[in-house]
Design a protein around this nucleic acid. Structure first.
Length: 473
RNA sequence: GGCGCCGUCGCCAAGCGGUAAGGCAGAGGUCUGCAAAACCUCCAUCCCCGGUUCGAUUCCGGGCGGCGCCUCCA
């Protein structure tokens, strides 16, 4: 498939280095608070990438997504909560897992956390390698990376060394650096902070080293195939990851870099520090479905800014309802002949969908292909009293839409949401029977009351020549 | 100041050199006791001005407007 590579700023053909297994690392959440839907835009987009590589392109996946469970924010927040860092971050790791499940993200192969023993050791080992190659210096017990020792530093973010102006901004970091452009690898312990000592002196890892070290520990030596995350991570985080991994090993770190654009709210990026955030639970509390949120977040290309609003959720929900109504209708098709022209139309749509997705993950384009097919198949079912589309055709159509959803992952979420009916099925059936009798007796007022009563309880009735159907609201 | 992105129908959004996909909303119609669902019909020359070209929404230049990174951030 074609993938836009931030490293080259061009779209390139992507094939895993070994031809079969994609080794991918994506930056996860700093677990000091619940992730917001801007964070999840990135995670869902990368989930779609994962699904496309796996289910469409047919590659095996070795995908690592980390948890940053030690930094200033996690430490401060845990102390305010009066909890140990581990216990505190456990809370938000669990919340993250819940949200991922709600939004239908596929579990990845590994979810390392920075403070696990094996990971801390890998970080310290990498720092030792960097020291051997002369890329480090120490100051007040902390270890820093001296970027002046790496000539191609800045190649990902396309910043020249002068562009990163020393001392222009106030550094929130209170540690001493020789050059504002340098960054910390290992922070010396401060009073009351968690501390580890594996050979760099007592302290804790810097943010960037965790990702470099865990990526290579779990995915093997570089270059890995893909590294991804939010667009804000290009600089400094990913730039520094490259500096560390390549400075330590002398090998390219990652062949492809994939970055997801921001989600905006009120024309600004949604971020915890700006305070303009909604998390997944907030959306659910307002009566929207997670499936609608997922749909809305994938309906804009991942490299374009997406402006969030409740209106787009409403629109997404309506589109999704049309989709699931269609699939339910396909499931009702019984008997009838197979039609070659339907089969070839479905095959063509599958091919078009694949090619959209293979074109740098053009999900909106893929949705267009899907809905075009949907309309045509609905039209076919309307023709010849239903004879124009037979059960064998329906099987092919169902298969096609299952294939689409392997990548989109949106119908699966909707189905799970609808697993439990809001009114017991026996009761719905009894009321439908009662209403049928009322209609026969031409007591339409009573019939309408039953329908309205069920709708108020979340069940919609639809009359058809073959009887009355019901569905969830 | 440096680097970069974006501006397509009321809303959301693909396309990116050959004359504008799709979704939502809306209008009319078919079907229906009425609805709903579904289908049919209708609903845009792509921010502005230049340039290149037989031809530009698509390329180039200049405006105007929105946003991002350069600092913790998905």
């Amino acid at each position: 498939m074609r993938l836009f590579n931030t490293l080259t700023r061009t779209e390139e053909d992507f094939v895993p280095a070994d031809g079969t297994t994609v080794r991918m690392y994506t930056c996860g959440l700093t677990v000091y608070a619940r992730g917001h839907i801007g964070n999840f835009r990135t995670f869902i987009s990368l989930d779609v990438l994962r699904r496309a590589l796996r289910h469409q392109e047919g590659y095996a996946m070795r995908h690592v997504m980390n948890f940053t469970d030690v930094d200033d924010k996690t430490i401060n927040a845990s102390q305010q909560a009066g909890m140990s860092l581990r216990d505190y971050t456990d809370l938000y790791i669990q919340a993250f897992r819940d949200d991922c499940a709600t939004l239908g993200l596929e579990p990845v192969e590994e979810n390392p956390r920075a403070t696990d023993d094996a990971n801390l050791r890998a970080m310290v080992d990498m720092i030792a390698q960097l020291k051997t190659h002369g890329h480090t210096y120490e100051s007040d017990g902390s270890t820093y990376f001296r970027i002046a020792t790496l000539p191609d530093y800045g190649k990902l973010a396309r910043l020249d060394h002068e562009g990163i102006q020393a001392g222009v901004r106030v550094d929130t970091d209170t540690y001493d650096k020789q050059d504002a452009r340098d960054f910390v690898l290992w922070k010396a312990t401060k009073a009351g902070e968690p501390t580890w000592d594996y050979g760099c002196g007592p302290g804790r890892p810097g943010w960037h080293i965790a990702c470099s070290a865990m990526a290579l520990r779990l995915l093997g030596e570089g270059p890995i195939d893909i590294h991804g995350g939010g667009i804000d991570l290009i600089f400094p985080h990913h730039e520094n990851e490259i500096a560390q991994a390549e400075g330590a090993t002398g090998r390219q770190f990652s062949r492809f870099w994939v970055h997801v654009e921001f989600l905006h709210l009120d024309h600004k990026k949604m971020s915890k520090s700006l305070g303009n955030v909604y998390n997944v639970q907030d959306i659910l509390d307002r009566g929207f479905k997670a499936s609608a949120l997922r749909y809305a977040l994938i309906s804009v290309h991942y490299r374009k800014q997406l402006t969030f609003s409740f209106e787009i959720l409403t629109q997404a929900d309506a589109a999704l309802t049309r989709l699931t109504d269609f699939l339910a209708r396909i499931d009702r098709v019984a008997g009838g002949d197979a039609h070659p022209e339907i089969a070839s139309r479905v095959t063509a749509a599958r091919e078009e969908f694949r090619s959209k997705i293979a074109s740098d993950l053009n999900v909106p384009g893929g949705l267009g292909v899907m809905f075009e097919l949907l309309r045509e198949m609905n039209a076919a079912m309307d023709q010849e009293g239903g004879r124009a589309l037979g059960a064998a055709d329906a099987d092919l159509i169902r298969e096609a839409f299952e294939e689409f959803d392997k990548v989109l992952g949106v119908v699966a979420v909707r189905r799970r949401e609808e697993a439990a009916p809001p009114v017991p099925e026996e009761e719905v059936r009894a009321l439908i029977d009662e209403r049928r009798q009322a209609r026969r007796d031409r007591q339409f007022g009573k019939a309408d009351d039953i329908r309205a009563g069920l709708e108020a309880r979340g069940v919609i009735l639809e009359d058809s020549p073959t009887g009355t159907r019901w569905k969830r609201k």
